[in-house]
Design a protein around this nucleic acid. Structure first.
Length: 608
RNA sequence: GGGGGCGUAGCUCAAUUGGUUAGAGUACCGGACUGUCGAUCCGGUGGUUGCGGGUUCGACCCCCGUCGCCCUCGCCA
């Protein structure tokens, strides 16, 4: 490890880590530094498990041992968990007592001298790899939680992954460029975190939701290939996979089309997964049209670890005696089905009722179902599918005895959402979603706009700068829903991990998009004037993407949420239990900012 | 903003229908022990049952309010 010559090293400094020593080091005199993970007393003999980042090594203190420092046994006898030590000792083989559960298990270190750096109070929870303490306490004492192997592993692999990404992009001539953290607020998108300005009273910076605009300005600047491991901030309600601040691999390229970005990012992801997590991703990543993904998987982020595609039964249903089917088709809807192989016996009537209740939360009225037996179709739709009709249905669904069929009949949006969710639920229940398997894909050509029912207006489906597939579009108002944007998502195992697009680089077209969405020229100037201006002075065609590092790492490591891969995360109310941020500030600070809080005084609010 | 779950010893949990002194494991303290590795054995300290109010002869348990954490819908261009 250290390059420092031995002569310049203090006598207490480690010669090895707690994960280094094997029988090859037998009889060497070594120095280890670390924390006491555990200790076992046997009267005249004490075992101490000494832990550092690299492993755990058993230290033995033997009252009978020769060469031991005076008072050593009494010193070690009163040490406790999490005390920090330097141990000088001799490596010896364990003989019959090898511990096969540890990399250092074939040896132990016979202590000759010990320096105590720090005596620890009993920790509020035990610092063991098997997590038992609740997350609230673990976040409050995060520095203790981070001593545990699962957390350290996550941070180490995360760092390896990010380094691999940096190396890859560096090799591809990308330039790492830092962009402002104090930036301009804009009303579109997520709620901004605001920072008051002292020298501009009454005015505020916003923390960036992403470096989107800055990287586009880098393209205008001719910087060609930009990237940044960028912290982003969004003041919205949180989830297991959302933190108020999170990290993106943000990149942008000039003079490119979709396939240039996708090819490059695919290579980057493969490299990152290999170097960071030792995972070989199957290539190429399939590329789905948005419509195709919705039609086949009922989702714009398909989980490709298993098949069970949505099968279109609309034509079959049109002529059906089953009114729910034929009625839905007549009303302009569709009928689709899923064939769950061998699932018939796993789903009782009750289990199917639960699935029905499940889809109702997505707006579906229910599920039609059938079990396939040697005799044909059984279940809710059986009486409409006897004889030839049944045989036709079975053939259409590719079903065999033992299979469970589930159908949705409604407007396409509802059918896709409901069956897409059922597909995932069945996939989980049938054990088809192996967390050790990783399957990636791209989804392209998203709708340009979507209708916001609450606000009764069209809005961006992706971001305001995504180019329409049709460069020459004159008027978006005719059929807004038909316009596709040159946006793409990167998806792994059903998680959306990245999103990007080819951008608009012509100010006139950008203005047209804003106009359509009812953003007045005055608002455009106030919020994005500097971007529109930049485009006047020679903007290259360009596009890029941003990938969520936290989600990527969490998924790769099979962790439940992103808090497990962030060193110092916040709670779901965006509170930092460790530092207790956010906090009140002094009246003096507020006066300087010319800010007056209207929040109820702290003493008025009830507290625990 | 809405819905759901949780809150009991430092930690992880238990406590019958509302009923006697709120228990166990672990940690911690003391003792025994020379081959343990989740050591074992003996003994001990440790409680505002999140907080406030209410119902009741009696509340960890029921009711109201409140705080915190987790999940989720909305939200996250």
């Amino acid at each position: 490890m250290s390059e420092t010559p031995k002569s310049q090293r203090s006598s207490w400094q480690r010669t090895h880590t707690c994960g280094d020593l094997t029988s090859a080091n037998q009889d060497q005199e070594v120095v280890l530094n670390g924390w006491i993970e555990n200790h076992r007393h046997h009267g005249q003999l004490i075992f101490v498990d000494l832990r550092d980042r690299y492993g755990v090594t058993q230290i033995v203190v033997d009252q009978e041992a020769a060469g031991m420092a005076d008072g050593l046994f009494e010193l070690v006898r009163r040490l406790g968990q999490e005390d920090v030590l330097s141990v000088r000792g001799r490596v010896r083989a364990r003989g019959q007592n090898v511990n096969k559960n540890r990399s250092t298990g074939e040896i132990e270190v016979l202590a000759l001298a010990v320096t105590v750096f720090s005596e620890a109070e009993p920790p509020p929870f035990e610092v063991l790899d098997a997590a038992e303490a609740n997350e609230e306490l673990r976040m409050q004492y995060r520095y203790l939680d981070l001593r545990r192997r699962p957390l350290q592993e996550a941070l180490v692999k995360r760092a390896r992954f990010v380094t691999a990404i940096r190396n890859y992009l560096q090799d591809q001539r990308f330039v790492d460029i830092e962009t402002p953290i104090l930036t301009k607020s804009s009303p579109e998108g997520a709620r901004d975190y605001l920072v008051p300005s002292r020298v501009h009273p009454g005015k505020f910076y916003a923390l960036p939701q992403s470096p989107q605009i800055w990287k586009q300005l880098c393209m205008v600047a001719g910087l060609d290939r930009y990237y940044q491991i960028a912290r982003c901030f969004r003041d919205e309600d949180l989830r297991a996979d959302r933190q108020p601040e999170f990290t993106q691999i943000d990149l942008e390229m000039s003079f490119v089309e979709e396939h240039d970005v996708l090819d490059l990012v695919e290579g980057m992801v493969v490299h990152g997964m290999r170097e960071g997590f030792g995972v070989e991703l199957p290539q190429p990543f399939p590329r789905f049209d948005f419509e195709q993904a919705m039609a086949l998987y009922g989702s714009d982020k398909p989980d490709l670890r298993f098949e069970m595609l949505l099968i279109d039964c609309t034509e079959l249903a049109r002529k059906s005696a089953f009114k729910v089917f034929s009625g839905a088709v007549e009303a302009g809807g569709i009928v689709k089905g899923l064939c769950a192989k061998g699932a018939a016996e796993k789903y009782s009537r009750k289990g199917i009722d639960e699935l029905t209740a499940f889809v109702q939360q997505f707006g579906a009225k229910g599920l039609a179902w059938a079990k396939i037996t040697d005799k044909g179709v059984e279940g809710s739709i059986a009486k409409f599918y006897e004889g030839d009709a049944g045989a036709e249905l079975i053939a259409h669904m590719g079903a065999a005895p033992g299979d469970l069929l589930l159908f949705g009949a409604d407007q396409p949006k509802v059918v896709h959402k409901a069956l897409g969710e059922v597909r995932l639920k069945l996939g989980t229940a049938l054990g088809l979603r192996d967390p050790k398997q990783f399957r990636c894909c791209w989804v392209l050509n998203f709708p340009m706009f979507e209708w916001n029912e609450d606000k009764q207006r069209w809005q961006f489906a992706h971001n305001p700068f995504s180019a329409p597939v049709d460069w020459d579009v004159q008027d978006f108002t005719a059929e807004p829903a038909r316009h596709r944007s040159r946006a793409y998502d990167f998806v792994m195992n059903g998680w959306e991990l990245g999103s990007g697009s080819i951008r608009i680089h012509r100010p006139a077209l950008q203005a047209k998009v804003f106009d359509f969405l009812g953003i007045t020229p005055e608002q455009q100037r106030a919020n994005f004037g500097y971007v529109l201006d930049a485009y006047k002075y020679g903007a290259p065609p360009h596009g890029g993407i941003a990938l969520g590092v936290d989600r990527f790492v969490a998924l790769a490591l099979g962790r439940e949420g992103i808090r497990d891969v962030i060193a110092f995360p916040k709670t779901s109310t965006a509170f930092d239990l460790l530092s207790e941020a956010p906090s009140l500030v002094s009246d003096e600070q507020l006066r300087e900012l010319q800010i007056l809080s209207t929040a109820p005084k702290a003493e008025d609010a009830a507290d625990s």
